[in-house]
Design a protein around this nucleic acid. Structure first.
Lengths: 217, 217
DNA sequence: GCGTTCATGAACGCGATCGTACATTAAGCG
DNA sequence: CGCTTAATGTACGATCGCGTTCATGAACGC
């Protein structure tokens, strides 16, 4: 169709520029939002001409979507790579919590979250997909672990999904609001470990987990 | 200085228009965001001329701030009016939870939250003030109740502020994410009651509250 | 009625940014 | 070297929305 057909020679497209543009787009969009970001600025950040940007991406919205998708992909990969862990239930949950919170409170994710809240509000279909790929996916994984533990009789819960949400909520606590409002800009590792361990401990007490009994079983 | 000096006569300003403009501004800002809203549209919604808007509000940002402030004021008033309640601890917490969640998940507040996340990210001072007036205020109130209960020996907690955040988190659970992503558009009263009661129950189990003991004391 | 203030509508200047066109230079292939 | 495609920079048309100006009419006190 309208596509190029590369008969033979000619200068090759510089594929490194795609990544540079996407990175610049991500930075700008996540920092300023869709409306406040300008293509000119993004091109400048990427060290690329504005025309080049339009060569590769249809328009501003297409670039936005591409940038968000790319970021989501790296995020999801990062979350799923962590091993199941065959330790005790607390250790298992803590391990997952570390990875999750470290990722949830990374500057880029905080920025992305702000973005999504604002710009995906009008497009329900897209929002739905992002939900299931992000928070929903996450909750489902934890629910699986909890359900297994419940079947082993280690804990007592009413509904795996609800309990998974409880645990997630306890982990996050007020950190979410504090980062959202910019009260806290950077969440260090010690804070994350503290929050995760505290959350897990409290959650397990809530669902009647008996550490001693589990150890001797 | 530059202000009017109302020597004697003259047509009186129509004070009802202020409210109309603020209401229109709120609707537009909360729906579309700061950048995407136009003064012309707001004026039209309010049934007012664009010039009139500029007569009363310095510029777009001033109008935005005024609209947010007005909304926050009604919110805070709504939250503080509820009586302390002299029932048992669970009843006290539940009562507060109902009011809070009903308000947190009202359409306007959900919209406002989206807005704040996005547009107040750059102005740290404003964000800080809003945090202390909103979430911070709320957490402090609950912390007070919990601290009193802890001193009476009804519950065992490490830190009132942290525990207050725990309770708030348990109440909200996944509802926040679900409304944020538009999975759920309207949260009905039954859901709110269920979530609050479940959250309170789980929280109290977590902090070692003994219902029977409290009742007989 | 008269002076004063409020309010409106239409028009304007202005800056910003989108997306495109064009001429020019750079890089690959034969 | 010729051919082809990539990439740049500048300039351009078009749109949009802010904030202002101006002429006109409407409400109110005296």
């Amino acid at each position: 169709m309208g596509k190029v057909r590369q008969i033979s020679g000619g200068r090759r497209p510089d594929r490194t520029k795609d990544a540079a543009i996407l990175r610049a787009a991500r930075d700008s969009f996540f920092e300023r939002g869709l409306a406040a970001s300008t293509i000119e600025d993004i091109a400048a950040r990427a060290g690329v001409s504005k025309v080049t940007v339009y060569k590769r991406f249809e328009d501003k919205e297409a670039l936005f979507e591409a940038a968000v998708k790319a970021e989501m992909a790296t995020m999801i990969a990062q979350l799923d790579e962590e091993p199941e862990g065959d330790g005790s239930l607390p250790q298992q949950l803590n391990a997952f919590g570390y990875v999750l919170l470290r990722f949830l409170f990374s500057p880029t994710h905080v920025a992305l979250d702000r973005m999504l809240a604002h710009d995906l509000a009008q497009s329900p279909g897209m929002a739905r997909r992002f939900f299931h790929a992000g928070p929903g996916h996450c909750r489902a994984r934890i629910a699986g672990v909890l359900e297994a533990a419940a079947e082993r009789g280690e804990i007592r819960i009413d509904d795996p999904l609800l309990s998974a949400a409880d645990l997630l909520s306890l982990w996050r606590g007020f950190l979410e609001k504090e980062t959202e409002f910019g009260i806290i800009t950077h969440v260090d590792d010690a804070t994350i470990r503290f929050r995760v361990e505290r959350g897990t401990r409290n959650f397990l007490r809530m669902v009647g987990y008996d550490e001693a009994a589990a150890r001797t079983s």
